[in-house]
Amino acid sequence: MYSLNREHDLIRMTTPLNYDRTISVGISDMRVSNRVGDVLITYALGSCVGVAMYDAIARVGGMVHCMLPLSKADPVKAMESPCMFVDTGIPMLFNALRNLGASKENLVVKVAGCAEILSDNGLFKIGERNYTIVRKILWKNNILINGEHVGGNSSRTMLVDIATGRVIVRTSGEEVVI
């Protein structure tokens, strides 16, 4: 799975984190965990979207990093790499968490990414459309977005702390808990 090795981003974090293992989530990748001490991290969300879900009662969490909004752009690819697309990636994450004991009622959902280049003549609009599809799918399933850090022109790094469910976003030198 394509992933960038940017361990130093974690070292520069100013928010205290108590972790002993980091699990990197690549582009078009998904990871879940129920192990206290794990931190899930995804680097360089450009127009891509990172969706984090956490169930505080079952203490399980997960994250998916989707690149494109709709699987119909490449149905063959969607079969082998469903997390590449928002419409197939979010159900994958949801099912994986349910298998670990999470329930829909307890899910806390956070969204980050969806940046755009300064002007794209409406050609790509991938960030905006990723965000629209995330909202649509969650809304259809009666799931609310509890926090988000989206849009703008900066790339983002996103972390989920499995012990607490805290989601942290790093962007252009700044760090936010969402």
Binding site: L4, I27, Y43, A44, L45, G46, S47, C48, M67, G113, A115, E116, I117, L118, F124, I126, G127, N153, S154, S155, S172, G173
Partner: peptide, 13 residues
């Protein structure tokens, strides 16, 4: 850059 491969501090500007 949109795919998130290589944006640095300059981001997607």
């Amino acid at each position: 850059l949109i795919m998130g491969i290589g944006p640095g501090r300059d981001g997607l500007r």
